[in-house]
Amino acid sequence: MRMIFLFLAGWLAAMAPALAGERHILLQSTTSTQNSGLLDAILPAFEAATGIEVRVVAVGTGQAIRNAERGDGDVLLVHARAAEEAFVAAGWGVARHDVMFNDFVLVGPQDDPAGIAGGADAVAALAAIAAADAPFASRGDRSGTHLAELALWADTGVDVAAASGGWYRETGSGMGATLNTGVGLDAYVLTDRATWAAFGNKGGHTILVEGDPRLHNPYGVILVNPARHPHVDAEAGQAFIDWLTGPEGQAAIADFRVDGAQVFFPSAGPS
């Protein structure tokens, strides 16, 4: 029938030559590495050097770790150190390697109702936000950023669970969606510097608090354990990890700029 013919014609027309046959690995990573443009900037060099295509699935750290546990990925690149170490300790990953770090920043509206601008003490700033009942937008998704944020709240002694729905808004979404919400609500948001730098919808928001050592945000890379998941391409995965933590990868990370500013800092130790 004619309808079926139509589908067939459309399908054939739409057959893209995207059927890449070459070797590839699957990288479970976080939105910050993708949204900032870092991976787009550094991966072509690795792919050109090795012929191994890196396919990136960018989700929150929590989801990336769970996907990797199920074997849906060869390499994990995330930022939640305690969760990463637990992942390796449980046998899901081979070993954790430092890759780079950046830092979290507290962004907020220019009128700054909690008066935290210019501060360098993240815990004090959060306590001030809570005291002012000023709106705060949280990821609320067990991502690396969310876990870091909860650790800071724990230090303030503020019970954010009790404030949820009031001044404390859990979006349950990715960094970008939470920033969009935060800008819309004139709310404070804790974000990583790279995502913020590359974010295109800043509205009137600016960085208000930065530089607190507690805002340190390290990224680790882990090979998914082929003993647990035999289909993992350990050779290609390890090649990627070696490159990323080696001189070329580290230099590529250091060279990456968003609007002229460095947002990731290589941290792999000499191997």
């Binding site: 939105t31 993708q34 699935v57 969009n180 974010f199 295109g200 919808n201």
Partner: peptide, 23 residues
């Protein structure tokens, strides 16, 4: 997985650009 050049379609590309704030 919204993998670039592999599984990125219109809607996931829109979601990605939204999350980058490129409204």
């Amino acid at each position: 997985g919204n993998i670039n050049h592999v599984t990125r379609v219109m809607t996931t590309a829109i979601a990605l650009e939204t999350s980058k704030g490129n409204l």
